[in-house]
Design a protein around this nucleic acid. Structure first.
Lengths: 227, 227
DNA sequence: ATTCGGAAAATTTTCGAAAATCATGGTTGC
DNA sequence: GCAACCATGATTTTCGAAAATTTTCCGAAT
């Protein structure tokens, strides 16, 4: 793996995790020392993250961590619902056996990881499997542009979920894995209307929860500052 | 303007125009000489274009002009219709006077440029105004992510239209400016259903025309090779 | 004839310094 | 006192070469 790729992953993680705070300036000299490499790979990583809207850039004035805003979160999620529900319908209509098998296996891997406690209960592994499951649902749609935008919007919304997960843990009174199971079941039954409804509810619940947490300021002060 | 920005615009233009052919390798030494600058700004431009899917990149193996494919064109346009029709409805519902004024002025500028012949009839100016008009229609939706994706999909489809425009000129038997006028009229009348229908037809006609041209191979051999 | 290995060439990636630009603080002139 | 101005330091941007990696080519062995 090249240094530029390492820099990209490290920076991305630190931004999503909140180690690098929303709005903070990203100086080349600092980052170069922090990650132990020269300017070139850092600069390349920053440009990639800029394209993903995780950092802002101003010509000759450097980079900053992109600001958090609940408006942007709602915007991203509503677009996500539009794009993903269409992709889910297309998948259900066109998906083959390989697609269905992908759903089953990614759901299994996700539930395994969600059940772990103590060592091995790594939030990044859990997040990766959560994302993999949602991608598997849509993978039958055979639309590269759809998958591209799904990736983008996932990265954009991850920033809001991770700090809450780290500070407050999973929400009480909500069984997220049961929701995943129900979505998978309806999808594999090729019941498009039900699957789409469940997927939409799943996303809406998540946004509502994040907004509530930031209102109460009971966790994730960084997110509260996004109001 | 920085050298990296100049490199980005030059490269983008040469890729969309077809000067740099689909699939061709983009070697740093060549580009460095061609545009008269060092590796750094070239590399930065290539990374930006990679994020826009106009060039492909493979670790340690360099960059290439992204291949053209009619499947990708149809994919991009169908997503464009999904996203833009929603944005147009939102604009019509929420747009203010500034939004409406933007439509009127950008349509006027577009028609002026479309009417020009001889000197001043620059295809890049025409394209810029065409794009500005379509953006103006949607600008009332107040959704940054929507506008981001609209930009992306525009860049992706521009590659297919420009070579045809350069080789074959405007299609016979189709008054594109009249279509623009009709879309603007319905939009300003806040007749969402009509506006959405006209916009969708506008895009579908364009795709059909491009596919027909590539089938007949009567113009734009580069596009024909995309089959 | 074909495949395998390995040196040579070509290419990308990374570094460190130089150049260009922006921000800061102090000084001058009014 | 206050605004304009310039020097200074900090920061980004760019360059050119070195390092790392891939590709190409040629000869040897089967």
């Amino acid at each position: 793996m090249t240094l530029a790729e390492k820099a990209y992953e490290s920076l991305r993680r630190d931004i999503i995790r909140g180690t690098l705070k929303s709005g903070a300036p990203l100086r080349l000299a600092d980052l170069s020392e922090r990650y132990g490499m020269g300017f070139s790979p850092i600069r390349e990583a920053l440009n990639r993250l800029h394209a993903e809207r995780l950092v802002t850039a101003e010509s000759l004035r450097g980079f900053r961590v992109a600001p958090l805003s609940l408006d942007e979160l709602q915007d991203a999620v509503s677009l996500r619902i539009l794009i993903e529900t269409r992709a889910l319908r297309a998948s259900i209509a066109e998906g083959d056996d390989g697609w269905a098998a992908g759903i089953v296996s990614s759901l299994y891997a996700l539930k395994l990881q969600a059940g772990r406690t103590g060592p091995g209960a790594d939030i990044w592994t859990l997040e990766a499997r959560h994302h993999a499951f949602h991608v598997a649902l849509l993978a039958g749609c055979r639309s590269p542009w759809t998958m591209e935008f799904v990736e983008r919007l996932y990265a954009a919304t991850e920033r809001y979920r991770i700090p809450v997960l780290l500070d407050a843990g999973l929400p009480a009174g909500r069984d997220v894995q049961a929701e995943h199971g129900a979505i998978a079941e309806a999808t594999l039954d090729r019941d498009a209307d039900t699957a789409v409804r469940l997927l939409e509810d799943h996303y809406r619940r998540t946004v509502e929860q994040l907004i509530k947490v930031s209102d109460l300021d009971e966790a994730a002060p960084a997110l509260a500052a996004a109001r």
